[in-house]
Design a protein around this nucleic acid. Structure first.
Length: 320
DNA sequence: AGAGCTACCTGGGTGC
DNA sequence: TGCACCCAGGTAGCTC
C-alpha cells in the first residue's frame, strides 16, 4: 500500500520525468477518479506546464504554470461554488496544482503514448512534446486526481508552517520529514489525545504519511503496544517512537529508490522490495526478529495489527 | 470538539 | 467448476 515512502518514490519519478513539460490533453476514463470535477479536467490542464512534484504525507501534487489565457475566469468560478473554496484570513491564492492521492491501489505511470491502455486506467494525460504519457491507474478507485487551488494555511494543524499546499491538503498535519514538522508540538498534541497510540499515528491531522504498515513497524521498534493510551506516553517515549517512524520509513525509501527504470514510475502496491525488511507486518506466527516469539495478529479498526506479544505487551489500560 | 464508526471499491484467496 | 464469502485499508463523512 502506498504510504509515505512509496509516495515519495513516485514523487521523485514524477519530478524527473514530467517536470517542465506542457500538458496537451487529459482524458478521464472513470468519473470516480476525479471526484467532483469530472468534465473539467481536460480544460483545466490543457496547455499548462508542470513545474515540479511536491508531497505532504501521502498526498502529492504537481504545481502548474499559469493558464495561457484567463478567459474562463477561474477566480469567479471559485466564488460561485460555495464557502469551502473561499480563502480565509491569513490565506492567499498561490496558483493551482494537479493533486493526486493514490488511495489503496493507485499508480502514476510515465509510459509511452503508444503503449496498450491498462485495464484499470482512470486518467490519461498527454504532453505537447509527444513524449511519455502520465497515466493514473487504480484498480480499487480509492485514489483520485484533481486540479486544486494552492493556499497558504494560516494555522496548519500541529506546526508552525507557511508552506503553500493544495486546498484539500490544508487540513492534514505535516509529515515527519518536512522542515515545518514540529516535534515538540506533535508530542504535546499526542498527549492531549484520549485514544490508543496506533489510532493516533494513523490520524493524518496529527501526523501525516504513516499508514497501517509503518505504524506497526514503528511501534515494534519502539516496543509499544498499539492500544497504549496516548496520554500515558512520556515525551521521551514519544521522541523514541517518532525516531522509529522516521527510521523505518527512511529505510523503506532507500530500498524503494532503486525500483523504477527509465520510463516507468513504479508504485509497488504490495511494498515489494521492502517486504523482506518488515519486522512484524504480515508476519503472523513468524518469529520476532528480536526475541523469537511468534508474531500475533489482532483485529483493529476493521483491519489488522501485528505485534510481538513479548516485546509489546498489551497494557492493562489498553484503548481500542 | 474530539473520538470512533462505516461506506466506498475490486481482485485474489479460501471454503464448501 | 462454481459460488459465496472474506480480506486488504486511506479517507470523507457521519454520529454521539
Amino acid at each position: 500500500m502506498p504510504e509515505l515512502p512509496e509516495v515519495e518514490v513516485v514523487r521523485r519519478g514524477l519530478d524527473q520525468w514530467v517536470s517542465g513539460r506542457t500538458i496537451a490533453s487529459a482524458e478521464v476514463l472513470h468519473p470516480r477518479a476525479v471526484r467532483r470535477n469530472a468534465g473539467e479536467l481536460s480544460d483545466q490542464l490543457k496547455g499548462r506546464e508542470i513545474r515540479s512534484a511536491e508531497r505532504r504525507g501521502k498526498y502529492l501534487w504537481l504545481p502548474l504554470g499559469d493558464e495561457g489565457t484567463h478567459d474562463r475566469s477561474e477566480a469567479a468560478d471559485e466564488h460561485l461554488t460555495g464557502p469551502e473554496t473561499d480563502l480565509g484570513v491569513g490565506e492567499h491564492s498561490a496558483g493551482e496544482a494537479l493533486l493526486a492521492h493514490l488511495g489503496m491501489s493507485g499508480q502514476l505511470l510515465v509510459i509511452e503514448p503508444d503503449a496498450p491502455l491498462e485495464k484499470h486506467l482512470r486518467v490519461r494525460i498527454g504532453f505537447a512534446d509527444g513524449g511519455p504519457d502520465l497515466r493514473f491507474v487504480d484498480q480499487r478507485t480509492f485514489g483520485h486526481v484533481l486540479v486544486a487551488p494552492m493556499i497558504v494555511p494560516a494555522r496548519p494543524p500541529g506546526a508552525v508552517a507557511f508552506r503553500p499546499v493544495p486546498e484539500p491538503v490544508a487540513h492534514i498535519a505535516p509529515d515527519p520529514f518536512e522542515d515545518v514538522f514540529d516535534d515538540a508540538e506533535f508530542a504535546a498534541r499526542l498527549r492531549r489525545r484520549r485514544t490508543g497510540i496506533k489510532r493516533a499515528l494513523l490520524d493524518q491531522s496529527l501526523i501525516s504519511g504513516v499508514g497501517n504498515i509503518y505504524a506497526d513497524e514503528a511501534l515494534w521498534r519502539a516496543r509499544l503496544h498499539w492500544a497504549r493510551p496516548t496520554e500515558t506516553l512520556s515525551t521521551k517515549k514519544i521522541a523514541e517512537l517518532l525516531a522509529a517512524a522516521r527510521a523505518v520509513m527512511n529505510e523503506a525509501l532507500g530500498e524503494g529508490g532503486t525500483s523504477f527504470d527509465s520510463l516507468y514510475v513504479n508504485v509497488n502496491g504490495e511494498s515489494g522490495y521492502f517486504d523482506r525488511s518488515l519486522a512484524v507486518y504480515g508476519r503472523r506466527d513468524e518469529p520476532c526478529r528480536r526475541c523469537g516469539t511468534p508474531i500475533r495478529r489482532e483485529a483493529f479498526m476493521n483491519r489488522s495489527s501485528y505485534s510481538c506479544p513479548r516485546c509489546q505487551p498489551r497494557p492493562r489500560d489498553a484503548r481500542p
